[in-house]
Computed example of a mutant assay.
Amino acid sequence: MSRLQIIVASTRPGRIGLPVGQWVETAAAKHGGFDEIDLADLGAIDLPLLDEPKHPRLGQYTHQHTKDWAARVGAADAFVFVLAEYNHSFTAAVKNAVDYLHTEWQHKPAGLVTYGGVSGGLRAAQAFKPVLQALKVVTLTEAVTIPFVQQFVEDGLFTPNELIEASAGTMLDELGRWGNTLSPLRAS
């Protein structure tokens, strides 16, 4: 049984991240490599700024919102982070969501779907990778980069071109491989 979690990192009203995340969810369902797909929209989850009294590595969570988030992330075998680029980096909401937990992230692969203007969110990806690596998340080389993302969104719907679709397929293939490869580490 393999479970993919897609995390939409932007929380701003009118954001493009949600339509992109919904497209990733549809692409993953069509791909067929995962038994379950969980679209985790940080805008809807609405975690407060980290408010746990103990370090996340202890797993001694006191708030229900943390317990719920831990169960959701812990159940995943692989992740796709849908990252907007804000000021040459990733969003505060995704950093907060990652910092809430520790062991729940470990020994799982992550694919990055980035979007923005001319850079397509690549600066956000480069800034985010060391954060994930510190938690023993394996970030894939295969990724989806969407420059000038506005051209692909109409009436709240993201419609990719062939290159973006092909990139997603390659990334999802690798997520499945790495999820299976890392499975013994998660079991121990």
Rank of each mutant, 00 (worst) to 15 (best):
S2Q: 12
I6T: 08
I6R: 03
V8P: 04
A9D: 13
A9R: 07
S10G: 05
S10D: 11
L18P: 00
V20A: 02
V20C: 05
G21P: 00
G21Q: 05
G21E: 02
G21V: 03
W23P: 10
W23C: 07
V24N: 00
T26R: 15
A27W: 04
A28P: 03
G33V: 08
G33R: 10
F34H: 03
L39M: 11
A40R: 08
D41G: 11
D41S: 12
L42C: 10
G43H: 11
I45T: 10
I45K: 09
D46H: 10
D46N: 15
D46L: 08
L47E: 02
P48C: 03
D51A: 12
E52S: 06
E52A: 01
P53E: 05
P56Q: 05
P56K: 07
L58Y: 11
T62A: 10
Q64I: 11
Q64L: 13
T66L: 07
T66N: 02
T66Y: 13
K67W: 02
A70E: 02
A70K: 04
G74S: 03
A75W: 06
F79Y: 15
F79N: 02
V82C: 03
L83F: 09
A84D: 13
A84V: 11
E85V: 03
Y86E: 10
Y86I: 04
N87Y: 10
S89N: 14
A93Q: 10
N96F: 13
V98S: 03
D99H: 15
L101V: 06
Q106A: 14
K108N: 03
K108Q: 08
A110I: 04
G111A: 08
G111R: 06
G111P: 04
V113M: 00
Y115V: 08
G116A: 06
V118L: 13
R123N: 14
A125F: 03
Q126P: 00
L132G: 02
L132I: 05
A134Q: 14
A134W: 07
K136S: 12
V138F: 13
T139S: 14
T141G: 15
E142Q: 15
E142H: 07
A143S: 15
T145V: 15
T145R: 04
P147I: 07
V149Y: 09
V149C: 13
Q150P: 00
Q150F: 12
Q150H: 11
Q150E: 15
Q151R: 15
V153H: 11
D155I: 07
D155F: 02
L157R: 15
N161K: 07
L163Y: 08
I164E: 05
E165V: 10
E165L: 02
E165D: 15
A166G: 06
A168G: 12
A168S: 13
G169F: 06
T170G: 11
T170F: 11
G176E: 06
W178N: 00
G179M: 03
N180M: 09
L182Q: 01
S183P: 01
P184D: 01
A187H: 11
A187R: 15
S188F: 14
